[in-house]
Design a binder for these strands. Sequence first.
DNA 1: ACTTGAAATGGCAACGTTTGCATCCATCTG
DNA 2: CAGATGGATGCAAACGTTGCCATTTCAAGT
Lengths: 343, 343
Amino acid sequence: MSDVARRAGVSLSTVSRALRGAPGVSPAVRAKVARAAAELSYVVSRDASSLVTGATGRVAAIVPFLRPWFFGAALAGISAELRAAGLDMLVYEVGDAEGLDSYVRALPLRRNVDAVIAVSLDLDDRETKQLDEIGVPVVYCSQRAEGRPSVFIDNAAAAAAATRFLLNLGHRRIAYVQSRDETGFSWISRHRRDGYLQAMAEAGAEAVVVTERDGPRGGAAAAARLLGAPNPPTALFAESDDVAMGALGVLRRSRVPVPEAVSVVGFDNHDVAEVLDLTTVAQPVSELGAAAARLAARLLRGGADPAEHVLLPTELVVRRSASAPRTAPGPTPEIPTDRRGRL
Amino acid sequence: MSDVARRAGVSLSTVSRALRGAPGVSPAVRAKVARAAAELSYVVSRDASSLVTGATGRVAAIVPFLRPWFFGAALAGISAELRAAGLDMLVYEVGDAEGLDSYVRALPLRRNVDAVIAVSLDLDDRETKQLDEIGVPVVYCSQRAEGRPSVFIDNAAAAAAATRFLLNLGHRRIAYVQSRDETGFSWISRHRRDGYLQAMAEAGAEAVVVTERDGPRGGAAAAARLLGAPNPPTALFAESDDVAMGALGVLRRSRVPVPEAVSVVGFDNHDVAEVLDLTTVAQPVSELGAAAARLAARLLRGGADPAEHVLLPTELVVRRSASAPRTAPGPTPEIPTDRRGRL
DNA sequence: ACTTGAAATGGCAACGTTTGCATCCATCTG
DNA sequence: CAGATGGATGCAAACGTTGCCATTTCAAGT
């Protein structure tokens, strides 16, 4: 910076003020400084600034995993908003609860970020309190944390609506497919299941919940299990599109026509759901991230309620993987004459 | 840090040395300092360290987009390796070439990261030179940059092999589906197309290249166009699984049986490819990222050739979306009697 | 006992910024 | 025309580390 000062013929303070757009610099000098900085391709060192201002200009996004579609979409929203606020995004993949635990205990974020955005982390009380200790504001994304800033959807209501959609189509035997990862049930799936259970109970229908591992593999396993049941369901409601897609794969390979023999509904509106004609509950994933990032930025500016909750809407996207059940259902699904084009 | 020093009853220098594991500290003192730091839940400020050491402990990963499956997988690999090296990962989504341009011009990385990993950025010479100006080592991931450290696969060879696979099955009319984003052809697609063209030429088969927009939508459009051709191809080789999945969607909705009437081959081995039974060229995406991160870390330690190239292998994953063509091909594809289970 | 050397520790300057305060100068007011 | 006002600018002290150098301590060798 002193190089820039020398080149522009002014003092360090003036350069600092000019480059930050701080008031108290004449337009002429400001331009001169800008030119000198450009000529030297100089940029301020955030580290040095942080040292005196105390702000790092960085926000950490903590995700359990990086590969699933959901997190890429969420990070895209976060990234865009953070950049608009002039903040950089650090990304940490913490894995399961155990990984998170060891991660949080090490407190590497302590004085190295201004805020943390925890994406879909499924924390229990103890872990939430641990995060409080980091010493910077934590915004919860795709997750409701009482008394703390969070952005989320109403998973229970959305799942109930999707379930009622199937019920209203005439389905009675609707199975819910949930995943159990190594670390127990996830917060999100729990809520979706509760919505399903409630809708089923209200309709007087018998609930069937099958639990398999996460992802398409789990969905495949669940479909296999349900096809082997004495009285197989006419509809599957999967915790996520990933799971639903696994089930669709098994059904297709088994030549069980969807939706004629079995209807399938997912959750997320995954990018691939459209291609698969999967009826699903769409949630605004990127917007979830964006809202969390905006909330974090507002928190840093001091203009936000530190316990603000943002509820985002969901929408049932009706495609062709779910329809009214066959009127005369039998235990052995027949192949309908779909070559006639009769849906 | 002075708090820790006071509590441990030693000087600042000693605390600094003890906490960094530097030599010249007695085990007793080291333990005492560690305890004091833990009691105060103190962690060193990287910013302050950076100021004097000149190293930031941060590496930037620049990706064009965050949503596609590919980048999540790549970032997962990068993240894991960087963490193993004690480095933090900053992620920037730069969008298309124009976004990258304005981004690089602003040089925000200049003195704020130790290295940059450019993931699948499709840069021309001018842009590559621009990146050189950042002043920190740049590692190219999923992209070959002459004279610069890069990690990549042999796209042309892999595409040629996939094309020959179709040729050897008996296909002659094989179309290649490529995408054109707003910024022109991508580097990667170009190479894959070249491999396809070469294999077709060697077999004396006529090449057909269709260009549509990127992603499943583009694949859908391409499939629609090919179905409307006078002599439609018996096989589609798509630039990526995303594109292939779009094509599969159109074919399924149109009741064109895959692979009986049309074989489809993709590229990437997307997580969903397995569920869709998509035959595809698998590339080790996470490993691509991991290798790039390792290379970056090695570069920072000074123990790497600054022009090192890492070539990773690909593998043709044969599933059920591609098979030998029907022996008596006709212009109007018939529905084969697939209910008999005859593949 | 005295020297020698190595290991452990402390003191202090420096890293590149920001910011409060002092200073300077030009313009406006009475 | 003197004095007040206020904007532009410079000076210097921090911020929390690290790393060089000096000092102390202690054990071993004479």
